[in-house]
């Protein structure tokens, strides 16, 4: 079995890349993509810790960590829908998705 640290390092890499995307790209949709990557890295951590937790610490038939990840996926889907809706609404008003040009949100 692959050690826990390997999964954590992959999750840290994906998180760092997502953070770099959110901080450096200028397109609002790409910033949302970066946020999605960070959420996914957190999910990978949740599932990895769920898998490697000792039996004695497992409550609710060992389902707690798995449930955390599943609810996290659901919330991330809601976040993506609202974020992309906002970007489309902003683009309709100002014809841009460039974050440097987004200085006001008053329609």
């Amino acid at each position: 079995m692959t050690p826990l640290a390997a999964f954590l390092v992959v999750a840290a890499l994906v998180f760092a890349i997502g953070l770099a995307i959110a901080l450096t790209r200028r397109n609002a949709i790409l910033v949302l993509i970066g946020i999605e990557l960070m959420l996914n890295a957190a999910n990978l951590n949740l599932i990895a810790f769920w898998r490697f937790s000792p039996h004695a610490n497992r409550h609710n038939d060992g389902l707690t960590g798995m449930m955390f990840a599943i609810f996290s996926i659901a919330v991330a889907a809601a976040e993506a829908a609202v974020g992309l809706g906002l970007v489309i609404a902003y683009h309709r008003h100002t014809k841009t998705t460039d974050l440097d040009a987004m200085t006001r949100m008053k329609g």
Partner: peptide, 13 residues
């Protein structure tokens, strides 16, 4: 494609 402060973002990441 990248913001003017891309270096700072990269360093933070």
């Amino acid at each position: 494609d990248f913001s003017s402060s891309w270096l700072a973002g990269l360093v933070i990441a």
